[in-house]
Write a protein that binds this DNA or RNA. Structure first.
Length: 707
DNA sequence: AGATTTACTATTTTT
DNA sequence: TAGTAAATCT
């Protein structure tokens, strides 16, 4: 039996073998190689990813053609990670499998079927910001003054349009559900939505939702759908709890012919409701697919029992939940530490101290991560890490391809490749002095009639250029000339723009223009791998992490590794030995919005995801005060209050002794009184410095004086 | 008068 | 950084 071959692979770690032990042989055959629909409901750290990897490996071992395997993941990173793990198991033959996000797979397929859906194959892809800009332009065009008329803002309109398409419900329903006060305006908002759809098609651009909608349509087409889906004999979907209605349609489209579908997920980790994700997709999977085999994996191979206890205790407060307590396989371990700090800077200092101490004790930096609800919460820590030269990798917040200067350059290439791309035109024109929104729009509508980029240099005399915009327009033409003149490779074009007057613009506009120029050179270097502008643009439209995220601190030659700073959303599916969760203050995490809009259950699941990322050490911190000019007093997060205090080791920072050694006061235990209330046992207070060594007590200094 | 630039305030999560 | 209000151009 192939499974045994897998189990005895010397490259398999202990934990992987434990996974195989959890199911009996018959069940393993179904999960890994069985035909028909299969649903694996797996708790955090119980082996979701391994299930997918094993099935792929098992199929390949049985001689299945790799290109008949389609692996749908939530992030590109997850797809790559899985591919490399399967390759490590079985070698290069895994290379042919189709793996990626719904969006990237849609991108690949739609390039080949562009004409069928009314586009040409050089279509551009709008990111979130581009799409909002287009809607803004439409509102202006329709002379809708959203302030005066109490009309929803472009961002709100965009959100409603996107949500309606993702949950596959009529627009009016979504308005009623998400923004009841705009119900009287439904007709008008719908007109904007229609205009948006038309403008995109005219500009030969798709937004993220178009990618999914058009793919779903194609898959349901009797002729094309068959042609696309037929080759995929095996469909695997990761993080199924985070799929929405349109994604469920796509999954059905791909898998309905062969019915060999495996989905894995955990309803407790559904954290994308704001994007239309619906836990019902996973709970009703057996209804949608007859004869589904269901398996539950409830053993946690990742975390210590102390960490799991906190996770379980928190999740118990959710009602809409499948009750399942995870059981740890690990023994021993410390209680998670609960650390209130005087301020955000003290929080940052404490975390940095602990990181140094743990590293001193032998934990490599790459097995530590700091997680936070919102990217803004990491700022103080980033300064602190930079100051101490602790190398880190930042995930979350702005992506490389979303940085203003990167997008500027990309838009130059976009107009060259797809001159109809109105959105890109608006951006590049607006960069010139003297050209604002209005002049840019005037020029863009005329220019985009051209099908050949080179023509804009010749035929401009025929166009009406507003007077104040003429200098800027000439400047743009000069740059365009540089771009198309000697060579056509994307790297050459990027360097041409970087050398042009755009460089002066950068120097003028940004104090950190040198860094930005370096970014642009990095982009050019990356582009050298491409001969053709189209191929380059298509790849970077969705594969953001091809270029590493923001980095700070210099990695010493000895340890190249960096620690990770990440939003919780981006940390999903990952794990570290030590995890810090920052800013667990009411209003921040849970966010004010979640509290106000009854989004607490989802928010609690987010907390659950964060806690279950940790293998051995977990630190939960929150600043008792925050704010930069006004002082704000924070309450500890609901999520901390809900968990019985005895599950934590409470740390109290008493003394800030310069910047480099914060001493802490720690209480080890607490007392449960006969009436059920709990009290901290003050007798066990000790002071330790950052290396964990005990210190003599010093007088208490009030945290307020520290500010 | 309309377009553009500048100065200011408050920040959720993502393909 | 985005959205907005006030200041400055044409």
């Amino acid at each position: 039996m192939s499974v045994f071959v897998l189990r005895e692979q010397p490259s398999l770690s202990h934990r992987q073998i434990d996974y195989a032990k959890e199911l009996n042989q018959e069940q393993l055959d179904v999960v890994l190689g069985g035909d028909g629909p299969c649903l694996v409901l797996a708790g955090a750290g119980s082996g979701k990813t391994r299930t997918l990897i094993y099935r792929v490996a098992y199929l390949l071992e049985r001689g299945v053609d790799p290109s008949s395997i389609l692996l749908l993941t939530f992030t590109n990173k997850a797809a790559r990670e899985m591919r490399s793990r399967v390759e490590a198991l079985l070698g290069a033959e895994a290379r042919g499998i189709w793996g990626g996000t719904f969006h990237s797979i849609a991108n690949r397929i739609l390039r080949a079927f562009a004409e069928v859906v009314g586009y040409t194959s050089n279509f551009s892809i709008l990111d979130h910001e581009d799409a909002r800009d287009l809607i803004k332009a439409i509102l202006k065009d329709l002379k809708i003054d959203s302030k005066a008329r109490r009309f929803p803002s472009a961002a709100v309109v965009q959100d409603m349009i996107s949500y309606a398409r993702n949950v596959q419900r009529p627009f009016a329903d979504v308005v009623a559900l998400k923004h009841p006060n705009f119900v009287p305006l439904v007709g008008e908002i719908e007109a904007v939505a229609g205009q948006y759809q038309r403008r995109k098609k005219l500009a030969n651009v798709m937004d993220f939702d178009d990618l999914l909608t058009l793919l779903a349509g194609l898959l349901e087409d009797p002729v094309h759908g068959r042609r696309i889906a037929e080759p995929f004999a095996y469909v695997l979907v990761d993080e199924f709890q985070d799929t929405n209605a349109i994604q469920a349609r796509i999954v059905r489209g791909f898998a309905k012919a062969h019915r060999n579908i495996l989905v894995v997920g955990d309803d407790a980790q559904s954290i994308y409701a704001f994007r239309g994700a619906d836990v019902k997709n996973i709970l009703s999977f057996p209804d949608a697919w007859a004869d589904t085999n269901i398996f539950k994996l409830l053993t946690n191979y990742r975390s210590t029992p102390q960490i799991l206890e906190v996770a379980n205790a928190s999740l118990a407060h959710n009602r809409d939940q499948f009750q399942k307590d995870l059981v740890a396989i690990h023994r021993g371990g410390d209680k998670p530490k609960l650390v209130p700090t005087a301020s955000t800077s003290e929080e940052a200092r404490y975390v940095a101290e602990q990181i140094l101490a743990l590293r001193h004790q032998g934990t490599p930096l790459c097995s530590m991560a700091v997680l936070f609800r919102s990217s803004a919460h990491s700022q103080a820590l980033e300064f602190e890490l930079m100051r101490r030269d602790i190398p880190y990798e930042y995930r979350g917040g702005q992506k490389f391809f979303e940085r203003a200067h990167i997008k500027d350059i990309i838009c130059f290439l976009r107009v060259a490749h797809n001159p109809q791309d109105e959105v890109a035109w608006m951006r590049v024109l607006g960069l010139q002095t003297g050209i604002g929104e209005a002049s840019a729009q005037a020029i863009a509508t005329q220019v985009k009639v051209t099908t050949e980029f080179g023509h804009i240099l010749l035929s401009s005399h025929a166009w009406q250029i507003p007077k104040r915009a003429q200098d800027g327009w000439r400047e743009f033409q000069a740059i365009a000339q540089e771009m198309i003149d000697p060579a056509q490779t994307p790297a050459d074009m990027i360097r041409a723009v970087t050398k042009s007057s755009y460089r002066d613009y950068l120097e003028r506009e940004y104090p950190n223009w040198r860094e930005r120029l370096e970014d642009l050179e990095q982009l050019a270097l990356f582009a050298e791998g491409y001969q053709e502008v189209g191929a380059f643009l298509h790849d970077i439209a969705l594969y953001d992490d091809v270029v590493a995220g923001r980095e700070g601190g210099k990695a010493s030659p000895k340890d190249e590794e960096r620690m990770v700073l990440s939003t919780i959303h981006q940390a999903k599916g990952l794990e570290w030995d030590t995890v810090f969760i920052l800013h667990l203050a009411e209003g921040s995490f849970p966010s004010r919005r979640a509290i106000a809009e009854e989004g607490m259950e989802e928010e609690r699941r987010l907390f659950y995801v964060a806690v279950t990322r940790a293998r051995n050490h977990l630190f939960l911190t929150y600043p008792m005060t925050s704010g930069y000019d006004t002082l704000q007093f924070n309450q500890p997060s609901t999520f901390l209050e809900e968990v019985p205090p005895r599950l934590f080791d409470r740390v109290e920072i008493r003394e800030a002794d310069g910047y480099h050694s914060v001493s802490i006061r720690r209480t080890h235990s607490n007392t449960v009184w006969s009436d059920g209330s709990e009290r901290w046992n003050d007798e066990e207070i000790i002071e330790v410095d950052r290396t964990g060594e005990e210190k003599k007590p010093r007088p208490l200094r009030s945290f307020l004086r520290d500010l």
